[in-house]
Structures are given as structure tokens and as C-alpha cells.
Simulated scan of single mutants.
Amino acid sequence: MLEKLIIVRYGEIGIKSPKVRGRFERKLIDNIKTVINDEIDLKQGRIYIYPQDIEKALQSLEKIVGIVSFSPAAVTRTNHDSIKELIETYTNELVDEGSFSSDDSFAIRCRRVGEHDFSSQEMAAYCGSVVYGVTQSKVDLSHPDFELFVEIRGNKTYVFHHKIQGLGGLPVGTQGRVVSLVSSGIDSPVATFLMMKRGCSVTMINFNNHPYTSGSNEKILKIYEKLKEYSAGAKLKLYQIDYGEYLHKCIDKAPERMTCILCKSGMYQIAEKIAEKEKALAIIDGSSLGQVASQTLPNVLATRYSTSMPVLSPLIGLDKVEIENIAKKIGTYDISILPDSGCSAVPRYPETNAELHLVLEALETIAAENEFEKAVSSVKKLK
């Protein structure tokens, strides 16, 4: 019976300095251990997992940020007889399950780490002869129907035929904490995911615009649960702000066309106050340049002017289709498109070319700072 395991590979972690690389490797392994409670080993730039339930482990690895690819594999000792026995057994299993047949051409891809009395090419030829002896299939090194990978690392040899693409990125929790403005729409959950993929721990902030919206938390809670699947060992928080009173002030005392500008400016300024309490280093939002009225360049300047903390917008250069494709991939799209009432505070003709001095005057007119303090005092943790 074959000894089965999973080989996990990472990418840009490997080019860090030895000290940073070690820290990132330990964090990635810790994150894996939050979802896979099995033996895990790190050797020579590879992570080896010996799972009790290999299918369940493979599914879990698909949502661990920092993993570039992974493969279910079999392992044996590094000597010709042991490798021959493993290749024969492995190939017969593939034939029995219909993954490989005598009609398929094949190639052996062999790589080697360490000192051995054979070259990679010699071992590839040897393994190819073993596969041919089982299947009588022809060899095609340029365009094979089937590839068998043989990875020799010191006194251990690993065999696999499938590389599963991972999420890539940096392990969550290696780049500090950010606060993310998250609505129940399509864009902001994607922006939040992309910052998690760059290694950030996230505090989500949702603004409840009731009575200008339904006030229901059903969608935002579902989005939170979906994003939590990618957070691994990092604590994902969700706070909510009662924002309807501030919006009412904007509508009542400021020019109607500026409602969206004042709304977004207020969100940044409130997020900054919460970020300070959370010891977060930046604010994240789902802005995509020119997509909606508040995201024109003049409006971006006007809404962020009063905020000293960096505001990062990972979607700024993406169009709607690109953003939707990511949302579908991570599973938030179907939640975001669930019907809701929308926001009735949006003016019929929103400002698209805000003048900064007029925005600042409007914020002063509505005594915005007092409203922000009240809004911050209303903060509650949903999750």
C-alpha cells in the first residue's frame, strides 16, 4: 500500500531574507494547522502534510492564502528498487481508475535535490522504462497526454501526477491589520479578499444606512462567513456603524447632489477612528476608478482629503467584469447579487466633479465631526 501525503509549495515567500522567510513559513504552517489537524513537516522549501483524510485536506488547502500549488503524492526511499516498486504501483492505480491508459503518450518530469549517484535525466529514463513496462505507452516529451512527476529530495522520493493551483499571495497575518469598508455589494468583499491575499489581517466595517436601506444584516453576515473561510488563523472581525442619522443630516442641511460625497467622506473619517483603536495601519475600500459617481478622480480627492491614514483601493484599475470574476471565484458573488432594497439616500443627479472647498464647507455646515463621534459611539461587533 502506498504511503500517501500532500506536497505544498509556496512562491514569493522563498525569495525573502532567511529571517523573514522563516517567519512567513511558520505563519503559513500555523494557518494550515487551523484547518488541518495532521502531521505537518517543512523541509527544503516544501511543506509535507500526512493527512488522515486526504480529500478533506485537499479541499481545505484550496482556501489557504500563501500556497501556490499542492499535490497529492506517494513517497518511498531513494533507491532504484524502491522507486521502481512505487512507480509500478502508482501507475497501476492510475490505469485502474482510468486516469492513464496505453493509448496515452507520457513524459517523466524528474527533479533532484541533494547528492546522488545518478543524474535527473538518468532517473527520468529509468522511471520511464518502468511506466512503459506497465502500460506499453509511447513517450512524448514535448506534448504528452500524461505527465508523471518524480521529485527526489535527499533520501526520499516523491511521485505525483497532478498540481492543484493554490491562491498564492502571502500568509494572512504577516502584514499587519487593516480596516475594510464592506457593504453587501460585489466590490468591497473582493477588495477585502485581495488584502487578505496580501497577508493582511482584516477588521470589516459595515455602515447601516437604515432608514435609507432595509437595515437587514443577512447579506453582510453571509459575506463575512464566506470571507472567514480564507482568514485561516487570523481573527476576522466585523463591526457595524449606525449611519442613518448622519445621512439624514447630509440630506437635510447640505446640497442634495453632494450626499454621496459626504457619505463616503464620513465613512473614511469614521473608519480612521476605529482603525486607531484596532491598531490598524490602513483603510481599504472597493473603489474602481470611474465606476460610480463617488469614484471619479475629483471625488476621490474630495472624499479622502480629511483622512490622514492611507486609503488603499486594490480594485482601482479593474473593470466590473474583472471584479465579478474574482467574486465568483471566491464565492461572494452569489451572495452580493441577492435582492435588496438599495439606498434611497442616493440623489437623482449625484456630484461627479466635487470641488474640495465646497465639500469642506458642507462638512462644517452639518457639524460632521460631532456626527462622526456619535456614529463611532454606536459601533457594535456583529462577529
Results as ranks from 00 to 15, higher is better:
Gly166Trp: 13
Leu167Tyr: 03
Leu167His: 10
Gly168Asp: 04
Leu170Asn: 05
Pro171His: 10
Pro171Met: 01
Val172Glu: 11
Val172Ile: 12
Val172Arg: 01
Val172Leu: 08
Gly173Met: 09
Gly173Asp: 10
Gly173Ala: 07
Thr174Cys: 15
Gln175Glu: 14
Gln175Ile: 06
Gln175Met: 14
Gly176Val: 01
Gly176Trp: 02
Arg177Gln: 07
Val178Ile: 10
Val179Thr: 14
Val179Leu: 07
Ser180Gln: 04
Ser180Arg: 03
Leu181Gln: 12
Val182Asp: 03
Val182Met: 14
Ser183Glu: 12
Ser183Met: 06
Ser184Tyr: 00
Ser184Arg: 04
Ser184Phe: 05
Ser184Lys: 00
Ser184Gly: 15
Gly185Ile: 02
Gly185Gln: 02
Gly185Phe: 01
Ile186Pro: 14
Asp187Trp: 09
Ser188Ala: 12
Ser188Ile: 09
Ser188His: 09
Pro189Asp: 14
Pro189Tyr: 01
Pro189Met: 00
Pro189Glu: 09
Val190Ala: 01
Val190Phe: 09
Val190Asp: 02
Val190Ile: 14
Ala191Pro: 04
Ala191Lys: 00
Ala191Val: 02
Ala191Ile: 05
Thr192Gly: 04
Phe193Asp: 02
Phe193Cys: 03
Phe193Glu: 06
Leu194Gly: 08
Leu194Gln: 15
Met195Arg: 08
Met196Ala: 11
Met196Thr: 12
Met196Gly: 05
Lys197Trp: 12
Lys197Ile: 13
Lys197Pro: 00
Arg198Phe: 10
Arg198Gly: 15
Gly199Pro: 01
Gly199Trp: 08
Gly199His: 11
Gly199Val: 15
Cys200Glu: 04
Cys200Ile: 12
Cys200Thr: 11
Ser201Gly: 15
Ser201Cys: 10
Ser201Trp: 01
Ser201His: 01
Ser201Ile: 10
Val202Phe: 05
Thr203Leu: 08
Thr203Met: 14
Thr203Arg: 10
Thr203Trp: 03
Met204Tyr: 09
Met204Pro: 06
Ile205Glu: 11
Ile205Arg: 09
Ile205Lys: 01
Asn206Ser: 14
Asn206His: 15
Phe207Met: 10
Phe207Lys: 06
Asn208Arg: 12
Asn209Arg: 15
Asn209Val: 07
Asn209Gly: 15
His210Ala: 15
His210Gln: 11
His210Ser: 14
His210Val: 13
